[in-house]
Amino acid sequence: MNTIQRIALALVIIGAINWGLIGLFQFDLVASIFGGQDAPLSRVIYTLVGIGALCCLPLLFTPLADEDNRGAERERNLAYSTEFAEENNPYEFDNDKEK
């Protein structure tokens, strides 16, 4: 993630916390700090949160780095045997030893 996406994500988190406060307690933190919902500074904050959400939309469609690495690992042939010797199956009986 680059710097702009991190700033946008921080703004979206601030907006989500504000919406959570509105939903749970009917308390608008941005409006109470900056002088009401109609105050110019509150409207700027609301606008920045909205722009931040638009900037975070591409994050939904970019693959995660872990998914790319897992795909590369699937293509390799991995051997999970021990390096010393083959393990014997304790449930398999050798008929030659009994004779």
Rank of each mutant, 00 (worst) to 15 (best):
A31I: 08
P63G: 09
L60W: 11
Q26M: 07
G50Y: 02
L60K: 13
A65Q: 12
G35K: 11
V49P: 00
L29N: 04
D66A: 05
A31H: 05
D66T: 01
E67C: 07
G52I: 08
S32M: 05
Q26K: 13
L29S: 06
C56S: 12
F27M: 07
I45T: 07
I45Q: 00
L57G: 03
L54Q: 09
T62I: 12
L29G: 02
P63S: 14
D38M: 03
Q37W: 03
F61E: 04
G35C: 08
Q37R: 14
P63Q: 13
L41M: 12
E67A: 12
D38R: 07
I33V: 14
A53M: 13
L54M: 12
E67S: 12
P58Y: 00
P63A: 03
V30Q: 02
F27W: 12
L48P: 04
L57H: 04
L59F: 01
F27T: 01
L48K: 04
Y46T: 07
A53G: 13
D68F: 14
V44S: 02
I33P: 03
G36N: 10
L59W: 02
T47W: 10
Q37I: 03
V30L: 11
N69I: 15
N69E: 14
F27R: 04
P58F: 02
T47K: 14
A31G: 10
L29W: 10
D38V: 08
T62D: 01
V49K: 02
V44L: 11
D66Y: 01
V49R: 02
S32I: 04
A65H: 14
A53F: 15
L64C: 10
L64E: 12
V49G: 01
R70Y: 11
Q26W: 03
L54H: 09
D38N: 12
L64M: 12
F27S: 08
R43T: 04
I33H: 02
L59R: 02
C55G: 01
L48Q: 06
C55A: 13
I33N: 03
F61Y: 10
L59H: 04
G35N: 11
V49Y: 06
L48E: 06
D68E: 15
D38S: 12
C56P: 12
Q26H: 15
F61D: 04
S42F: 01
V44T: 09
G36Q: 09
G52Y: 09
A65E: 15
P58N: 06
L41S: 10
S32Q: 12
A65W: 14
P40S: 05
